[in-house]
């Protein structure tokens, strides 16, 4: 089978494919390290030094500084590793969803409940 290089367009969605995995490797590797409480504490103590240690690109460093999930995704972040970054700030997936959709958390939660009706 020949793989078509034309990417499927799905609104509001970017598949984490090889292109994203290449682009986001340093960022994702840093976020993967946040499985460890010690590493999370080290990041909080000195964010600049921690990002430098993982060799983040300027785009990735700016995205981390912004705490903006869409920006982190655009810099190659994968949501499973980004969830560990969000965990440092005590944010859950509804906070993350609300931020990405530009809604309040309550409005985002209401939207989810509506989908069940």
């Amino acid at each position: 089978m020949v793989i078509s290089k034309q990417k499927r367009e799905i609104p509001g969605t970017v598949l984490f494919d090889g292109e994203q995995a290449r682009k986001g490797y340093a960022l994702n590797k840093m976020c993967f390290s946040f499985n460890s409480a010690e590493n999370r504490a080290e990041f909080v103590r000195d964010e600049d030094a921690y990002c430098a240690k993982y060799g983040l690109t300027p785009e990735q460093r700016a995205a981390i500084a912004s705490r903006n999930v869409l920006q982190l995704l655009a810099a190659g972040g994968n949501v499973y590793y980004l969830a560990k970054f969000a965990g440092i700030f005590g944010l859950d997936m509804q906070d993350v969803g609300a931020q990405q959709t530009g809604m309040s958390k309550d409005a985002f939660k209401a939207k989810l409940i509506d989908a069940g009706r």
Partner: peptide, 13 residues
């Protein structure tokens, strides 16, 4: 479910 992107929160009952 969808966690990431502008379409976060997408569900299809």
């Amino acid at each position: 479910h969808q966690l990431d992107g502008q379409r976060a929160g997408f569900l299809n009952k």
